[in-house]
Design a protein around this nucleic acid. Structure first.
Length: 124
RNA sequence: ACAACAGUUCGGUUUAUCGCUGUUCGGGGCAACCCGAAAAGAGGAAAGUCCGGGCAACACAGGGCGCCAUACUUCCUAACGGGAAGGAUUUCGGGUAACCGAAAGCCAGCAAGUGCCACAGAAAAUAACCGCCUUGAUGCCUCGGUGUUAGGGUAAGGGUGAAAAUGUGAGGUAAGAGCUCACGUCCCAACACGGUGACGUGUCGGGGGGGCAAACCUUAUGGGUUGAAAGACCAAAUAAACCGGAGUUUGAGGGCUGCCCGCCCAAUUCCGGAGGGUAGGUCGUUGGACUGCGUUGGCAACGACGCAGCUAGAUAAAUGAUAGACUAAAACAGAACCCGGCUUACGGAACUGUUGUUUUA
RNA sequence: GGCUCCGUAGUUCAAUUGGAUAGAAUGGCAGAUUCCGGUUCUGUUGGUUGGGGGUUCGAAUCCCUUCGGAGUCG
């Protein structure tokens, strides 16, 4: 099911600061991706967080829109990543930082995120 | 009907599929929680943070100094630097004029003190440079005129300047001067009338005259400080530890409050250093100076009464995506403790009023 | 959420606490020098002092408002 509920989001401050300090980073325009493995007993095998820097987008409306587009794209395409994680018995914390300067449409965002998720599943 | 201006209201709707947030109901489960259904889910500015409150904490005794804000009147309001109605002033437009209309503003006080006013000009505020009048000394000569020099009086005149010592007329004088008088302008005080009042009109008296307080300042009034990262509670963890200092017949230091006095605290104390642990949850947190309708008081802002209604509450942060229709990828734009204003951004739609043009009667 | 500061030529900075054409360096342009270019020299250009309004005789400076930018507090 393409859901995106509470337990799929990254909420814990502790895990977030751990991720920012020690996470692995790669970049594929327009997203900077940070990820790290987390100890296994979790409610959901992958916890995700989106971020948009205030420096690039002054208006709250624009930041909200980008986050929503990103979440929507992630929601519809995360299945194959989950399968991979199930097989290898791992859990992930994931952070998507939008580094672009312009707002993309939904189709573009979906395409870009598809590329990135495939890249990530290969690395795992 | 169209256009312009002003004001008020609205601020996309809807169908299908997938998805998000809390709430309620039903079912399952010891419980955590899971499944299903229902109804609800950003704004007129949520913004800027320019003002005012509520609320909370800080041991608000009290006094002085400082700092900040405000500054015509009456009213509205919980309060305001907001709003309403009015007064005076200035500017603009119309009119021969009385006056009418519109707009604006940090509308107390340079008649408390201090300070500043470039350049130009004699002088920028205790005005004598030139000029005018006059006295002494002295030169000349036609013997009452003229020149030189020293002193005194004088603001009528002087090419400057943003601004030049209250305007006009008369008297007065050696020459002159608000020196005196009349009229006029402005200010102050008293009285009468009108008005709740600012103020207006009139009478009488006084005597001030450059400008600048968005110069320091004076007067009056108000303001304790800090802001939900305030604060309360629960859970988890831990260290009543260590080092240095202050201190007990006296006042160092501290008490989140500008400074001083004062008051309060006192080794189970305070301050500093270097470390350890936690960083989750609940409340605060949305029922309120609330919203809608009706009646009613008031010129109005706004108030009173009655009936009905419940209308976001997230916590890394919920409203989105896809396809289509209306009519067009609708504008500005996203709540974060809550209200009242102000200001700024904004595609379009509707209504009302005023002005102009055209058509018909 | 609160608080503080800053906006001047294309760029980097001045302007003696209100006083006159807003100045300097650099840049741009033109000329000289050179066979050509650079360097150097000379001349010249360029400003709504972020925008709007006000006070004043006079505003970059004082006041109000607004726009933009930067910093800071757990």
């Amino acid at each position: 099911m393409p859901t995106f509920g509470k337990e799929e989001r990254l909420c814990s401050r502790k895990v977030i600061s751990h991720l920012i300090k020690n996470g692995t980073t790669f970049f594929n325009h327009p997203f900077t991706v940070k990820w790290i493995e987390i100890p296994l007993p979790q409610n959901f095998p992958i916890q995700m967080l989106t971020a948009v820097p205030k420096r690039n987008f002054k208006k709250a409306v624009d930041r909200n829109r980008i986050k929503r587009l990103t979440k929507e794209a992630y929601r519809t395409q995360k299945d194959f990543l989950l399968d991979g994680l199930d097989k290898k018995n791992k859990a992930l914390a994931l952070m998507l930082i939008y580094s672009g300067k312009k707002i993309m449409s939904q189709q573009e965002t979906t395409l870009k995120l598809n590329i990135i998720l495939r890249q990530l599943s290969k690395i795992i």
